[in-house]
Amino acid sequence: MSEMKKIKNLKEFSTSADRFEGANLLCPGCAHSIIVREILNATNDDLILSASTGCLEVCTAVYPYTSWDASWIHIGFENGSTAVAGAEAMYKALKRKGRLKQPDREPKFVSFAGDGASYDIGFQWISGCFERGHNIMHVVLDNEVYANTGGQRSSSTPIGSSTTTAPAGRVSYGEKQNKKDMLAIMAAHGAPYVAQVAPNKWKDMIKKIQHGFAVEGPVFINAMSACTTEWKFLPEDTIAISDLATDSLVFPLYEIIDGTKLNITYRPKNVIPVKDYLGAQGRFKHLFKPENKHVLDEWQKRVDEKWEYLQRREEAGV
């Protein structure tokens, strides 16, 4: 077993040598690369990566350039997870046969995908990987919309959000369905580790990623990725918006171990109202019209209920 990288504080962490390069074509202020950097810097082991189609893939592999300093597979919309799972299966087979060229090095297998490629299009593939129990980590860069193709709704899009295929206007308040609870679904696969992370809480994130690398079996990470283009806020506010999301409990940070044991890993000191989070983004601005007040109320109610549920689950330990 390779040794875990020791990260005590941010100063120590800042001595990491990045394996993700600049001059990628992600928007200025995109949270994707903040998340990717934090994950790649959490380990010193070799990495085998893939990215399903989405912003991250198309922006980091624009011919003739690559932004990755690790083995990285460019693959279809749905099968990023299976590509990495295949590599992992091959690694295991070669190891068993004693044909690995560097048997002392244990690579880590990570697949990155957007919420569209995980919640909708790649769901069957991810489900398959988790059912077969590959030793991989699947990271969802959850920006709640198909940002790469121009902001269509995905099944991760929350209620009331205005998207290009569910636009808000005279008759509609935007997206009608609520976000799919992907963590519960992946935990139900019996995965050894499932967690929700946010880039602004880097220490919590590093801890979860390192735990995910240490366990044997499939690991699912849902990373909130604030999208300056589709959520409609200024690029410099990415971290501020992420703070609002975690402090208003819209994105509660928690983990589920072995499919059952739920731990809340971040409890905000001052819980802020959900409308502060919604009001900071252009995609929800129509909700503040008087006729849409019921959506705002429903938002707050849903977030409160979810938080209550998580706390009960944590107490019960089941």
Binding site: L10, E12, S14, G22, P28, S33, P199, I239
Partner: peptide, 20 residues
């Protein structure tokens, strides 16, 4: 004050930090 907040939150690996 070398808190490194800019380093961790830079999306473009453009903050150069060496020896903390």
């Amino acid at each position: 004050i070398d808190c490194q907040f800019c380093w961790i939150y830079c999306p473009d690996i453009s903050i150069i930090s060496r020896d903390k």
